[in-house]
Amino acid sequence: MDETVKKYTTRKEFFKQYKKKSRLQETWNRFLRNKTAVLGLFIFVFIMVVAAAAPLIANYDDEAIKINVPARLKGPSAEHIFDTDEMGRDILARIVHGAQISLVVGFSAVALALFIGGAFGAIAGYYGGKTDEIIMRCMDVFLCLPDVLLALAIVAAFGTNLVNMTVAIGLSFTPKFSRVVRSAVMTVRGIEYVEAARAIGSTNAHIITNHVLINCFGPIVVQVTLYVASAILTISALSFIGLGIQAPIPEWGNMLASGRAYMRDHAYIVVAPGLAIFVTILSLNLLGDGLRDALDPRLK
């Protein structure tokens, strides 16, 4: 006891030992101990880097877009590791550039869903009662339509382009985020610091944004990770059935759709783009599961 007192001469220094391990630090350490989660993170960071460096890996116009019929379906070679497609374009170049689209649309769609769904969910969860009932019943209606179908309906009505597709996927995920945020808010709502904030006269809007939502961060991050995976899957699904990103632009789903006719003799044409989708989704799922376990140790 005496030793401790001697060791820490100033108050600041004394408290430092407790500060050293913040909650974030602890969570991070728990995350690092989970090998599959770290693997997921590693793969996902790799995919992001590859997507960002796509122009350095392959020229967009020359290799991913320009039709070069004499070079079509030549089989894998040193020049075209993953073969060329039915138009003579390098499959690897198209996959790498396709990653950009998938990631950008995936993240934007989820951001939109989080923003709209989160707002409704936070209001429903915070106020409860009638407000909650009305908002959640409306969201239930949207949940009756599988999200691929809802996205399909929106794309069908407004046309297929990048923005419409992002909005379509974002809106179809909105009810799910409202549910997640609502339940997270409800668990935090009754805790003392919220009551304290109310007691000192904070406005509801201030309490929701500064006290409640900040403390719901964990479950929301987990869901964002998992839903970016679903968003990427939905983009390629829509493109695969011809209602997403259209032909000359490289996208994993439309590569599968156009390569289908040639897959009997050229398996690479469907194996490679599908593998890209699969690995991306897998890495996000691993990462999301790992984050969930790290944030909530009781689940382990």
Binding site: A237, G253, L256, M263, A267, G274, I281, L282
Partner: peptide
Amino acid sequence: GLLGVSLPIFWLGLLLIL
């Protein structure tokens, strides 16, 4: 199971056909 939840339906379909 972990691999299974990440498999895109349409890709799996194509692979099964192959």
